[in-house]
Design a protein around this nucleic acid. Structure first.
Lengths: 341, 341
DNA sequence: CGTCGCATATGAAACGTTTCATCAAATCGT
DNA sequence: ACGATTTGATGAAACGTTTCATATGCGACG
């Protein structure tokens, strides 16, 4: 209840209760046996002076900070915020705090942030790095000495990972389009060596193969997940001599750029072009017409990532990395129709 | 470069360099004078063993953690994520880390999270509490002993604050509607004692007064900022015997609910009803028709919040709380038209 | 030539916990 | 009633830093 100007310590509590600091500590941590009468006395002292233990000092002693770091490209995009939110809930429940940061997809920032997390003795890290996890950067990650969960990245055997099955979802979507008669289907997505882009391309090719068709490589545009890239790629594709009849927007926040590009050319959806996005959003749902999407449960990805980390922290067993694949679904909405003939 | 299995400490560095730990510390912190030759020797030892200081131990000693906490209702809504993002950038620049958490607008969670931040010795907190800042909760906040920046809440003299001028923006919007001939304008917004709601109501009334009109109180629906409330309130209003001809959605993530409600009744915008949202979003921008909005610069709010906190940390001077009002603008888009007569 | 002062390096204390080896007191069995 | 055992409290060490009061070496000055 009461509060001094100056923070009081376990020593003050011990003094007030007339016991040794060790005893207060045992009471605080419910350790072994403390005589009920002493326990009450200590408890009362604690309550009266509104004492609560200094977590930094505890961390220093026990070597664990109950802090998890999270390094993503951009927490400002709703999908990733959804991931963070879900992971937060799981961690919070377990008494862990979440330290977040934006890498902006820049390599040196990713390194810097991770070094900071290591210095701060974070107990674990969730990260979806843009730096390729090979060679020097891979060594760097391993030597950090912190359990890592990779988020939507190629699985490695020395770390846990969660991924969404972009290949599967993309394949469903493309097959649907082909079934409708589309033969010129564009796929735009991010840096092509990054898992989500790579998998979408893979799914795209598989669909074409399944129908015995050959891909026009000029219809696959890759390089950046940014909305601005969505606009740029879509504009370029639509301006071609022989434009696509359908566009797959293969990045969680690229859809708005693609829609702007279509709109700026005065084209209609799905009359002039069919559109499919990646990841659900209010935009996709409430757009006119509603945009079909390939989607997965972002919250589930967050929960799994946090869960894997907690598991690893509990059982120090340095088992092999575990990898969880979250399924992808194709949601058909009015933005998809047969190609204009 | 090299890395031992076990983390090495300043002691190891001292040993390797053949100096005392104090000397290593002085080198690390660029303190006073160290003979160049010694400095080189120490630096080399540091580099060779890839040593980096344990931030927890540093915090313990110097009493500062370089950590800022952030407690919001829901980081999953893009507007708030935008706030977090901007604040993060400013803090990151200054070497601070950001600890985030979701209060879900629940009082006991807010308290719990703040207690946790205090235990962790956070250097400051940014918070937009849902618990009214009076009486016991106010005392609790003050006694936390951590600098606080209130985000979009009523200003108090003992803490800094950033607010958006919702009253001004709402007034502009309502005046525009009245000017177009609207007389039955609905305002839906959150818990009516919370700053953003209260201000919007204030602006709404001011606009009516400015035109010498009287308000039909049944058109002002308050109680929750959730999208689901947007749907509920809008549905109720549209179902009235004498429905409004315009709706102001007075909550950053209520618009989708309002739009769903309008859609579910098969009404057209702006033919049957004019719509204005709060806070810009891809949804508002790319909707058909685009939705007019009352908006403010969320990133600016985040930057200011972080800036106020850093200022306060630097100059321990316990000056009075400073308060920054971020302006609101009305963006007219196609979702607004004259009322059907 | 002795002493003062300055430049630098040292070692120990301190930050607030937890834990562990002791130690004192109480309880038990015979 | 007395040694053996258990129960429960104690005090100090340890975690990895920073900092501060000393200590040492060295050139300069009277």
């Amino acid at each position: 209840m009461a509060t001094r100007g100056t923070k009081n310590t376990i020593r003050d509590v011990a003094l007030a209760a007339g016991v040794a600091v060790g005893t207060v500590s045992r009471v605080l941590n419910g350790h072994s046996t403390v005589k009920p009468e002493i326990k009450r006395r200590v408890q009362r002292a604690i309550d009266e002076m509104g004492y609560s233990p200094n977590a930094i000092a505890q961390s220093m002693r026990i070597g664990s900070t109950f802090t998890i770091g999270c390094v993503l490209r951009e927490i400002n995009v709703p999908q990733l915020a959804g991931f963070v939110r879900a992971a937060h809930d799981v961690l919070d429940e377990a008494g862990f705090s979440l330290l977040i940061s934006n890498s902006e997809g820049r390599s040196e920032r990713e390194r810097g942030l991770l070094e900071r997390l290591a210095r701060r003795q974070a107990d674990g890290v969730m990260i979806g790095p843009y730096t390729p996890i090979v060679g020097e950067f891979e060594a760097f990650l391993r030597e950090l000495g912190i359990p890592i969960v990779l988020v939507d990245r190629d699985p490695v055997d020395w770390a846990d990972g969660v991924m969404a099955d972009h290949a599967g979802g993309t394949r469903l979507a493309v097959e649907h389009l082909i079934g409708l008669g589309h033969r010129r289907i564009a796929l735009i997505t991010g840096e092509k060596d990054l898992y989500p882009a790579k998998e979408r391309i893979k799914g795209y090719y598989k669909a074409y193969e399944a129908f015995g068709l050959t891909v026009d490589p000029s219809l696959v545009q890759t390089g950046s997940f940014l909305p601005s890239a969505g606009f740029r790629f879509a504009s370029a594709l639509l301006g071609q001599r022989n434009p696509p009849t359908a566009i797959l927007s293969g990045g969680i926040d690229m859809l708005s750029g693609v829609l702007r590009a279509i709109r700026s050319r005065g084209m209609s959806i799905p009359g002039d072009i069919s559109v499919i996005g990646a990841g659900n959003s209010e935009l996709a749902e409430l757009h006119t017409p509603p945009i079909s999407i390939v989607s997965w449960d972002q919250a589930e990805v967050g929960r799994v990532a946090a869960g894997l980390l907690l598991d690893r922290l509990r059982s120090q067993a340095a088992a092999e990395g575990r990898h969880v694949l979250v399924p992808n679904e194709f949601h058909l909405r009015a933005s998809v129709g047969p190609p204009r003939t």
